[in-house]
Simulated scan of single mutants.
Amino acid sequence: MASLIYLDHNATTPIAPEVLEAMLPWLREGFGNPGSDHPLGRAARAALDRARAQVAALIGATPDEVIFTASATEANNLALIGAARALAERGRHLITSAVDHPSVAAPLGHLAASGWELTVLPVNAEGRVDPADLTAALRPDTVLVSVMHANNEVGTLQPIAELAALARARSAVFHCDAAQSIGKIPVNVDALGVDLLTLAGHKFHAPKGIGALYRRAGIPLAPILFGAGQEGGLRPGTENVPYAVGLGAAAALAAGRLPALTERLTRQRDRLHATLAAAIPGLTLNGHPEARLPNTLSLAFPGVTGRDLLARAPRVAASLGAACHAGATAISGVLGAMGVDPARALGTVRLSLGAETTDAELDAAAAALIAAWRGLTAG
């Protein structure tokens, strides 16, 4: 069988060779505990500090504002539950969007079940939050607003700088889940104006099992795990030095190839879209036509289901929606929030490109998808 064409980079990315090489010494001889005061421990601490500085440099932060976690999910839980608990005396009103990831929605739901009040902002047909809706939702007791930077299913970018400015003008802390945008487009915490920002290593060529939370200096945060004093007392447990080194190496790699990578992915994405649209009448784009990730195509194929289409194009590794919903036949919550009708939603396939995706692979993927669609709709 011909080799697989991997177009599911929004689900996860392969570990970059440069990242693996950076990690290997710390999986072999560099096994010291960063808390130990001997040469092995001090070397591990220096590696951890270097990785923290690399992550900070990618997002325009300072190293002491970066907290290593085991995942973006953990970072989101720490940001949301930690901030809500720390700010509880000021108010218990929280705001998020209807399209945020389950790792944001679930901890906020937990807080709502524990006595906080939660407002969920709607999105328009392109998946964007209207800043006017946030303005209307903000109250004197609003302490936290969380809106994702880029949607994992359709790629739509939110107007984060405008939303964050509105929240902070009302003294609310603003959190942004940037798991999907880091490594694909430039992300700067000061330009966005965010107080808390989440990163996921495996979304930009670091391994699974490592993430980070940016916390702007002075933002109150209560721990949600308890133990020793690692990560400023906010993430106890012996630090995962090899994976933190991997995250730092991935951050340095991303910083070095942006914005050239953004430009190439945009060109490839648009070329793939044009090829498919020319051959498939009625093909529809989900999400914003311009304000979206450069690598993401969420396309509704008319007259078929996405599941049947991909079954007929087995070389193409893609997704029917968010990776964590794979195997489900229910309509995507994101597409539902956008008002996409059921038939179009069920015909949707997400094609997400990566740094190693070639033009030849995209040509082959387009041919396979076109042939699959024609085979399903013939007669």
Rank of each mutant, 00 (worst) to 15 (best):
C324N: 05
A252W: 00
E74I: 06
I210M: 00
L369K: 09
G229N: 00
A254E: 03
N240T: 01
A113S: 14
R315H: 08
I81K: 07
R307N: 11
R50I: 11
P294H: 07
A260F: 06
P220G: 01
A250Q: 09
P63F: 06
P107N: 04
L285A: 07
W26F: 15
R374N: 09
A251W: 05
E162N: 06
E361V: 08
A16R: 12
D190E: 14
R45T: 00
H93K: 08
G82M: 03
V349I: 15
T119Q: 13
E65Y: 05
T12F: 12
D64K: 03
A51Q: 04
L4K: 15
T329V: 14
A371V: 06
L192Q: 04
I15H: 09
S171F: 07
A112I: 11
L376Q: 04
L376Y: 03
M1V: 15
G60I: 01
A343L: 15
K208I: 08
H101D: 12
A72L: 07
S319D: 12
T275A: 15
A98W: 06
L20Q: 15
A366S: 15
L24D: 11
Q230R: 01
R267K: 08
T296G: 03
A254G: 02
P302F: 02
G303T: 01
A250M: 03
T329M: 07
C324R: 14
A105H: 05
I185C: 08
L299R: 01
H205Q: 15
L276R: 13
A326I: 03
A51P: 08
